[in-house]
Amino acid sequence: MDKLTTLAEAVASIPSGSHVALPGFPITRCAMAFAREVIRQGIKGLTLSQCVGAMDADMLVGGGAVVRLICGGGSLDKFGRLNCVNRGIEDGTLQAEEYSSLSVAFRYLAGSLGLPFMPIRSLQGSDLIRQIKERTGSDVADITDPFTGDNWLVLKPLLPDVSIQVVHTADAEGNAWIMGPRWDNVEQAKASKRTILIAEHVVSTEMIRQQAEKTVIPGLLVSHVVELPFSAHPTSCYREYDYDAKEIEKYVKATSTPESFKAYLDEYVYGVKDHWGYLEKVGGLKHLNTLKADPILGY
């Protein structure tokens, strides 16, 4: 089945208030074009989840699209912190449920396997678990191992309405290849009701069949396939393009106050019609070509 569509149509399939699993890891393979389109379309009230909070989540929070964030902390690596997320946590406008990387990954894993809960050794003896119990009450519990009698903390599965995946290669049906580390992406796709793929390259199903061992997301999980180059810009996409240090620095500076971020959104999100307009705005093909990855190094 051909699921090829535009980014605007794929994003329009997400109702306000949905739970969206985001694919980024601090400054790599973030769903940036997706985040910009969600903000342009005025979608609100989202719950976001990802193992480590990344630039895609920060932009969506700063753009006013998010009420709730489930993650294991996050940053923009050495470029800075998640200023919009942190501001939301500090002033109480964002409901943040903070775990660790593995506890969010295990919640997706439980969801992906159809299990009712997942035991974990993490979080014990920390303020993270105290805070999660205070804030959610129902997403964690203590049980007794029926075989040994030991006490275990168990986590409720995460079942997002939709996962967004920025992938290297996919066919029109949504069979997808991801190069490099995949952090939580595969478990996210399998735990979610459906997945929207944003692919750097769309190829024929015959091409996928030739190297099917590379397929990490099967097409049966996918509702929409969008072909969009540089969709993670200014973050990186391994073996495709490097991160754009100057544009990330600009973002970090802009997010330091709500006022300066509003100006940033006016220029880079509302001020352009779509992703193609954004790519022109940041320098077009001439600039983007300087970010192309070296085939040996991958960056």
Binding site: F25, P26, I27, T28, C51, A54, S75, D77, K78, F79, S101, L102, A105, F106, L109, I120, R121, S122, G180, P181, R182, W183, D184, N185, V186, E187, T235, S236, Y238, D242, Y243, A293, L297, G298, Y299
Partner: peptide, 27 residues
């Protein structure tokens, strides 16, 4: 610049996932 920088992954023997590293190795 951090773990999310592909410079840090260069020439790795395994590129996998959280569940693989933090789950089946650490946990």
């Amino acid at each position: 610049v951090g773990l999310a920088d592909p410079r840090v992954w260069h020439r790795a023997k395994v590129l996998s996932s959280f569940v693989d590293i933090l789950g089946s190795i650490l946990h």
